[in-house]
Each structure stands twice: as structure tokens, then as C-alpha cells.
Design a protein around this nucleic acid. Structure first.
Lengths: 217, 217, 217, 217
DNA sequence: GATGAATGAGCCTTCATTCAT
DNA sequence: AATGAATGAAGGCTCATTCAT
């Protein structure tokens, strides 16, 4: 009896270890892939930054591509969860729009690894993304939130009614992604440190101004 | 005398050949680097798509990195030349602003290879860009053009006076770069073909609206 | 009592399951080893073609080599049993000799897997065969049958008396093994399909002719 | 002038080195493949037994399979050359037939590596052999020699006229290949050392007897 | 008796680069 | 100026096997 309980515990413990190993691998891989790109990333390096061995990458993910796919999926999933945490129904339409823009802005700044990963994936023409079934219509949450706000604004007459939510989302995304994804080259060419707190703060406000300016009736 | 002339001709011919070889390598390398990224690009593949051999890459550019640097420099130089061709002083400030936005938009759409190259460079934190002396303050032309227009607009009262030209440039760049650089992932997630002519046309108009909306007094 | 009976039944059932599992592994392994050779055979593949797991190979046979040894032993044992089924004492010596040759011929054609296995073992210099105690003087049955016929023939004056039974067996074996073991290369080089029914039939008759021709007084 | 000559010499020297390296690789690979089979052979081991490095295998042969193909081709080519050295037109048909059998016998005994290679290739169903264009109708020489002798014998009435040369070749090949290819297992099962000089001598004579016995009118 | 999880060692291959005229 | 031959170092992956119940 004691033994049974004991092995049950041990078994659970191992499962937890397995899960932890998988998670660690995923975390490190996210870093490495976003730092070096897909081809630049080295399976050896990923393993070395971990407590496990390279062998486990093949055991858990089947190979380098499988690991990359898993990284991609996990990253997008995290984003979706964050987006689902957004709420703006308690705010007036104009404020809500600014709020969404600003929170999206912050979210991008706070997750540069994800943004870089998206860049990497785009370099490869999104060929991997298409393979991950679970990522089909992942875009919906963010857009439907905007959709609601735009509808409220149109009803109240505070926001113009001829703008598509996806277009608004694209404007916000463009601006936010650029901050992070092109920080290096834009910063170099125009001598502007995109990540400096005061710069970030100004850019954040500007984005709000632009979006509100565009959508206000 | 005849001989001298003869060898002078031969020498010139050779130089022209050399120049052609260099140019061909550069052209092919631009393609390959922008398609596969820095690490993903294969020196062998670049050479194979050329009439020369791999050895010439080392002869002319010193190595893979040297070739990439040369590609980067040539690409940025071409962009600058294009920007210097922009003229808007014959237009009213509001029209000029829209014009600049739209031409920038077209320019990005028409040079996806360059945009991808910039993405690649950002993946590597712009570490190569910084090495190319000749690219210091390459940003100036585009911004000074905007600066002029903003000044004219402020003077005439048609444009607001509290906006920085670099911020305007960043807004335009963000939007335009996103169109090309993130076409794959955004297209996948929102089922929108960013390169389709009608979509492109709508996005182009929207950008103009946003910029004009933001800057109008 | 009921319980004891119950567990006895269960135990038997389990043994039967165990035997079935062992047998299945052996059967599949015979196929795989004869198709791919010793090194070419994959423990994973053998297990996958089975209802059990790879782990069982280690449980029942100790490892890849143990499994191979078991395959070898089982294969040779089956052959011996087949040879013991041969009877020729009711035939006249000359007919008996032809009969043995033809039956051996058929047996080889009908068990290509075994012949291939022998090839595999020879590639490895018979190093495994020597380890299987139970296979010592496995050759006896076939040869002693020939011995009897040769003795009868010598006595009756129908067969020459200066030929060793092992030499006869070797001639027959050579010819029969070659049909199967070298079908691919010989067939390729001479454009002859060794396994086609009519070719097989002719070869069979030729073998009989050769053996009878050699041994006839 | 001196320099030119000097570099011409050096260049030739290098080519000779290259040729030697290639040849050495081929020789060692022939050994290793025939000893361990295709899958069992290790690229590392082949390289280690050489003065060059593993890298050269890829440089010269493209990979493991390319090396194996080259080994196969070279081996068969050598055999063909040996067969073309056979001459029997100065002997009476019966003697010629025995001569061919005996020389073939010796040739097999003296080139066990080749025989083993053929076994290896048959384990893989001759799938590589078929890829080597240059080995199409390689069988011809040996058979046409036999064809001539058989024709002479038929004309003189010394040999029977109803036997196909390929069938004769197959008989001889079967017997000779078996000596070498199955030496291990046959030797083990019947306690006979196939490679012992006296055994070899007896087998040689027996083959001659069998062939002559079969073909004599 | 039976098993899922984990793994060390080694495999084949490819990369960017240099040698030697 | 131009080049064919050669190569060291590392890369991704797969093998048979053992651990720990």
C-alpha cells in the first residue's frame, strides 16, 4: 500500500519532470530561434542552455523543425490568451479605442521575442505557420473586440462607421510591430533608441492619437 | 604601341568583366539572402546561380559576411537614390503629405527583396549595418523632405505644427513595411492577401487618410 | 480454491500470450533480418511491425543480437524438420538422387527468406551461428539420406562409388542457393528472371540432369 | 619557362595524388563493405583506414552510397577484365570447358572480397547495381567464350549441342560462388574447411568432372 | 511478467573556408 | 586577375539500449 502510493507519487513526479523538461526546452528554443532565426539556431546550443541533452529534442519534438513548430504554436497561443484578457466594454468608444491601441503597444514592447519570431516566420514565407492546424483563425479575438467597440461607436455617433476592424487592427499592429522588429535598423538610421522609456512613452501616445484621430467621427 | 593599346583594351575588358561578375554576384546574393536569411543562405547556392564559381565570392568580397555587407550597402544605396527622386514642393502641404505616403507605399510594395533584407538585418540586431560606414545618416533625405512639407504646412496653417518629421516617417514606414514584411503571417491569420491589387489599392488609400487625418490642423 | 484456479487459468493464458508474442517477434524479425541484413535491420522497425513494443525484444531476447540468434536457430531448425520429411528409399537410386535434388531445389525456391538469412550470416563469417549450441551437426540429416542412396546405388552398380555424399550435397546446395541468393545480380547481368515459373522449371530439370549425369556409373 | 614547367609538374603530381587518394578510398571501401555489408560499413572506419579524411569521401563520391556504387562498379569492371584475359581457343573443346571451369574456380577463390560484395548487393536486391549504367550487359564476355567452345564442341561432336551457354555459366558460377560465399555456414555445418588447400584442390577437380560429365556427348 | 520514458554514443552529411598555384 | 582542389569543424539526426517501476 505504502509502496503503491510511493510509486504513484514517483510516477507523477516524473511526469512533472517531463513536463518541466519540455517546457524548458520550449522556452530556451523560443529565445534561440528568435535571436538567431531558424537556420541560425543550433540544436546543440538550445540543448546546452538546458538541463537536458540534445537527444530530448528529438524525443519530444521529433527534430529541429518540430521544435520550431512547437515554439511557434506556444508563442501564438500565449498571445491569444493575452488578447482574450483585454476588456474595453466599460469604456466610452473613443477611450476604448485608445486603450486597445495602448495595451497592444505595451504587449508588443513586452514580448520582443514573439515579435522576432514572427519576423523569422515571415522570412520563411509563413510556411511553418500553415502547418500548425491549431493556429487557424487565431486572429479573431483581437479583431472581434475592435469590432464591438467600432459598433458601439457607430451607434453613438462618436466613431465613423466606414472603417473595417481588420484595417484598424492592421494599423495598430504595423505600428507596434515596427517598434520592436525594426528597432535596430530604424534606430541606427535615425539615431533614435526605440526602447528608451521616454521614446516608448511618446510613441505610445502618438499611436493613440493617430488611431483616435482616424476613427473619430 | 599596338601591343600596349591592345593590352590596355584587354585590361579594360577584363575590368568590365570583373565588374559584371561582381554585379552578378551581388544581385544573386541579394535574392538569396532576402529569401533565406543570413544563416539560411548558402554560399554554394549563390555561386551556383551565377556564371562564376564560389571561389570568386572570396576573391571579391572576402567571404560570406563581406558579401552580405556589400548586399546591404548596395540595397540601402539604391533606396536612398529612389528617395532623392521624390519631389513634393509643387503640391499643397496636405496633398504633398498624401503623395509622399503613397509613393513610399508603392516603393515598398515594389521592392519586397529590400524589405526582407531589412528584416533579416533586424533579426541580427543590425550588427552588420553598423559596420558599413557609408550608411551613417542614410535616413536624412526622406525625413528632410517631410520636414520641408511640414514647415510649409505649419506656415500656411494647413498642418499642425507639433509633429516631428521622424515620427511621421516612422508611421509611414511602419505601415508600408508591414504590408510586405508581414504579408505571410498576417495574411494567414486574417485570410487577407496583402499583395492582391485591390487590397493593395485600399491599403494605399487608407494610409493616405490616416496620415492626412493625423497631420491636418 | 476458486481464486487459485482462476489465477492458474490466468497464468496459463498469460503464458500463451507470452508465447504468441515471442513467436510474432521471431516471425517479423526473420523477415526484417533477411530483407535488410543484420546491421540494416532496425529494432524499431521490427517492433513496429508487431503488436508489442520494442521493449519486449529486450525482455524476451536480451537485445538485437539475441533476437537474431533466435531467428537463426528457428530458421535452421525448420529446415532440418523439412529435410527429415524427405524420403527416397522407395525409389531406385538414380531416381532417388534426382528426386532429392528436385525437392531440395523446390525447398530453396519456396524459402527465400531462409536463404537470404544464410547469406547474411555468411557476410558476418558465421560468427553467430557458431554461438548456437543447438545447431552443431545440423547438416547430418540431409547428408545421411544421400549417403543411404549412394550406398544403395554403389551396391546395385547403378551409381559410381567414389563420390562423397557431402560433395553431392554441396553441388546441389550450390546450385539451389544460387538460384535464390543471387537472383538479383545474375538476373540483372544476364537478363534472366530466375523466379519466373518456366525458368525455374528448366533450371530444376537441368539440376537433376547434372547430378544424375555426374553420379551415374 | 622554368616556373611554368615547375608548376606543370606540381599540377600533375597533385592529380596523381588525387587519383591515388581516390584509389585508396576505393580499395579500403571495397574491403569494409565486403566485410560488414552496406549498413554495417561505417564511413568513419573507411576514412580512418586511409591517409585522408572522411570529408574526401563526400568530395570524391558524394556520400556513402556513391562510394558503394563506385566500389561495385570497380569490382565488376575488374572481373570483366579478368574474364577477357581467358583464352581457350587453343584447347580441345572438352579440355577448354574444364579449363574455363577451373580458372573461374580459382578466380573466385582468389577474390573473396568481390564475391562477398555480390552477396551484399543481393541482400539489397541488386538495387544499386541497376543504377550503374556502365554495368549493363557486363555478363557477355564470360558467356560468349563458353558459347564459342560449345559451338566448337557441337561441330566436332565432342560436346552435346542442346545446352545453353548461360546455363553452363550458371552452373559454374553457382559452384564457385558457393565455395566462397557460403564457406562459413557450410564449413560449420559439415565440419569442412572450404579454404584449406587440399579441400580446394578436390573441389576444383570435382567441378571440372561435373561440367565435363554434363556436357560430354 | 510487463512496460513507458529516457538516453549515450555514434552516424552520415554539409557548412564556409583556405591552399597552391 | 582568376581558379580548381582540398578541408576542419560542426551540424542535424538515429541507433540500440537501460532506467525505474
Amino acid at each position: 500500500m505504502v509502496d503503491t502510493q510511493h510509486s504513484a507519487e514517483k510516477s507523477e513526479e516524473r511526469l512533472r519532470d517531463a513536463e518541466r523538461t519540455r517546457a524548458e526546452l520550449l522556452e530556451v528554443a523560443t529565445e534561440v530561434f528568435s535571436e538567431q532565426g531558424y537556420s541560425g539556431a543550433r540544436v546543440d546550443e538550445i540543448a546546452e542552455r538546458t538541463r537536458t541533452t540534445k537527444r530530448m529534442i528529438y524525443y519530444y519534438f521529433g527534430g529541429k523543425e518540430g521544435l520550431y513548430l512547437a515554439v511557434l504554436e506556444a508563442a501564438y497561443r500565449r498571445i491569444r490568451e493575452a488578447e482574450q484578457g483585454l476588456h474595453a466594454d466599460h469604456l466610452a468608444p473613443v477611450d476604448a479605442v485608445r486603450r486597445i491601441a495602448e495595451l497592444t503597444f505595451d504587449h508588443h514592447h513586452d514580448h520582443p521575442g514573439f515579435i522576432r519570431l514572427v519576423s523569422v516566420e515571415n522570412i520563411h514565407n509563413g510556411q511553418h505557420l500553415g502547418k500548425v492546424e491549431s493556429l487557424r483563425d487565431l486572429g479573431t479575438p483581437a479583431v472581434s473586440l475592435l469590432d464591438d467597440v467600432l459598433a458601439r461607436g457607430r451607434a453613438s455617433g462618436e466613431l465613423r462607421g466606414d472603417v473595417d476592424a481588420v484595417d484598424v487592427h492592421m494599423l495598430i499592429s504595423s505600428y507596434c510591430v515596427f517598434q520592436v522588429a525594426n528597432a535596430a535598423t530604424f534606430g541606427f538610421l535615425f539615431g533614435r533608441d526605440m526602447l528608451a522609456p521616454d521614446v516608448r512613452e511618446r510613441h505610445r501616445r502618438i499611436l493613440g492619437d493617430i488611431v483616435v484621430g482616424w476613427l473619430s467621427a
